[in-house]
Design a protein around this nucleic acid. Sequence first.
RNA 1: UGCCCCAUGGUGUAAUGGUAACACAUCGGCUUUUGGUGCCGCUAUUCAAGGUUCGAGUCCUUGUGGGGUAACCA
Length: 564
Amino acid sequence: MEITDVNENEEKKSLNFIEQLVENEIKEGKHDGRILTRFPPEPNGYLHIGHAKAIYVSFGIAEKFGGKTNLRFDDTNPEKEDEEYVEAIKEDIKWLGYEWEGEPKFTSDYFDQLYTWAQELIKQGKAYIDSQSSEEMAKQKGTPTTPGTASPYRERSTEENLELFERMKNGDFEEGTHVLRAKIDMAHDNMHMRDPLMYRIINAPHHRTGDTWHIYPMYDWAHGESDYIEGITNSLCSLEFEIHRPLYEWFVENIKDGEYQPLQTEFSRLNLNYTVMSKRKLLQLVEEEIVSGWDDPRMPTISGLRRRGYTPKSIRSFIDTVGVSKRNNIIDVALLESSVKNELNKTVPRVMAVLDPIKVIIDNYPEGETEWLDAENSQEDESLGFRKVPFSREIYIEREDFREEANKKFFRLKLGGKEVRLKSAYFIKGESVEKDADGNITVIHATYDPLTKSGSGTEESKRKVKGTLHWVSAEHAIDAEVRLYDRLFMDENPDGHKETNFKEFLNPDSLKVITAKVEPYLKDAKHDDKFQFQRKGYFVVDKDSTADKLVFNRTVGLRDSWKK
RNA sequence: UGCCCCAUGGUGUAAUGGUAACACAUCGGCUUUUGGUGCCGCUAUUCAAGGUUCGAGUCCUUGUGGGGUAACCA
């Protein structure tokens, strides 16, 4: 039974508030039942798990109600944006399993239309060129409790406005000398309505339009009009744009030609504990080389999660379970982890890898002999079959799986204690240890019971044992680099402290690189192959892995209910 | 301080005026050739006060708490 399948789940689940709204619109025949949403990233950074929610919401609504979704790059600020990000964003969306309608769109495709509309607003007396400094304008804006005052340029003549506007476009002016503002209401309760900026001068080349333009539209002016141009029905965005909605509507109402108008609806963004989600802070981690890049497996980016071993399905099911509402939230990262464990548990083969090896010599096992034992690949999926695992006199086990002395709660290997099972092999007993000059154990001596071979069906092999250990044959084991990742921050809400910089909370142990001994079966493992290292967790082959040197990333550890 | 939004177990989300539920987390038990998985169970929830109603988590009022907002960013 596929209980994790997102779509199957959705049929049983109640609709979220946006889905209810859209359902009602369709019932009422709005837009003739047509649904077109859009996902509008700014190409100034990589997508993160928060964007995955935005993608899920916009693409998901369209999927659910037979609509489509446009991908539109909101590229109105050439100083921050870059083509590199455009490609990375497209790749991430595709990887998540979504398809946008037609070709990707760019707000810059609409610069001409936007410019024409702006000229019309000027002609209608609804926009004007202001030639003050930003400081002066900020002063005139007033405060929430006191109305603003009019700019001395507010009543400039249409002719002068038009001429200045054209010269701004052509690059006749320095940055900061003039702006185009909408003429709305300097006393409005909503500060965004106090004659907001529509255009500013930026004399920098744009990644798509080159040096054609010297003015660039502001978000509020560009966004709603782009939605309008594309025929978007539902413009879904996060809560901080709620207060922009009256402006979004004012702009569209003043350029529209007919009944059609897109509707903006806001929902709360996704926040995860023990990480940061702002692009600015993520960029800082990248630039200061605190992480290895946008796709560092500790990053909450889509590319980071991918490299960490997350699957598109697990991310989608995670977003599905966290839901969509208007409440501020901080979601426990354990929920994200449980979604990937839940999927990997069912799909991924088990192998044996010893992360912190200590040698065990089985004194009564014949020297020089190797047996190739059958090991089950998955207890959850029989179709994954069996593989051969070599067994010999000298093996490695996990250092923490042995104690010279321990209480009854410790049911792993100890001296003079009960026998333990070597997974898919034999039962052994701890006999003695060798130590170096400092008293550290260097070798454990054990004996095995030849009648207890796994799968042999003998009475002896059916004896109840409390402990089962994973192991690898010393002679056959291969070395692999294993990167053990932990949360990047030690604080649940690293950017939630006004007096403390988020970097103060960085976890010094967020990455540990070790050399593990893994079974030879893994020799041919390829980039992105995923495994469960028995009793240790889920691991994925990193892109740094080569034929000569295997590299694994730990996606997530297994639940460990053993209280030490 | 004005305006806007939000308030359900530890976390997140449902209940659409009619028995407050689900997932994750926690704790306990059973099963198990992974101290994994699976199964069973425990603990724990409607911010407060009024009002409307036969009946309020849901509607109304006030209060309280949290968040957003006054960029030539998006």
